[in-house]
Every structure is written in C-alpha cells, then in structure tokens.
C-alpha cells in the first residue's frame, strides 16, 4: 500500500497523473487532424466534375467522415472537461 502512495506522489510530482488521458487526447487529436484533412480534400474533389459512381462514393465517405469528426470532437471535449 505504501508503494502505491509513493508511486502516486512521484506521478503527481512529475505531472503524470493524467498520462493515460493525455495519450488518448493526443491520439484523438492526430486522428481528427487526419480526418479533417481528408474531409477537405473530398469536399474539394466534389466541386470538380465527376462521374456518378465516383461522386456517390465520395459523398458516402464525406458523410462517414463528418460523423466521425463530430463524435471525435465530442469525446475530446469530454476529455478536457475531465481535466
């Protein structure tokens, strides 16, 4: 039990108490960055003339990515709120 207390105090001294959440936040931010950049490129592509099949594919991807970004941002807000 003493060891647990000791580890906790070391973690707090080094500012590592929330390291799991910090890691998740970083991964989420990276993922959101990638998804946003993909969303931008799809939106740009959709402004160019495309055949119907390709347009449908891109619209579907855009819808999925938008939904994922929305969910990701919600999780990120929650993580910040926790802190």
């Amino acid at each position: 039990m003493g060891i647990k207390k000791f580890i906790k105090s070391v973690q707090s001294t080094l500012g590592l108490e929330d390291y799991k959440n910090e890691g998740k936040k970083k991964s989420l931010k990276d993922l959101l960055k990638k998804l946003t950049s993909r969303k931008k490129s799809i939106t740009a592509l959709l402004k160019t003339p495309l055949d119907k099949k390709e347009e449908n594919r891109l619209r579907e991807e855009l819808e999925i990515i938008s939904l994922q970004i929305k969910k990701g941002k919600k999780i990120l807000y929650k993580l910040y709120a926790k802190k």
Partner: peptide, 10 residues
C-alpha cells in the same frame, strides 16, 4: 488510422 476507420464504417 483514418483509412482503417473509414473502411470499417463503409
């Protein structure tokens, strides 16, 4: 990761 997530959702 974004490709994996997109393909699984699709």
């Amino acid at each position: 990761e974004d490709v994996i997530m997109l393909l699984l959702s699709k």
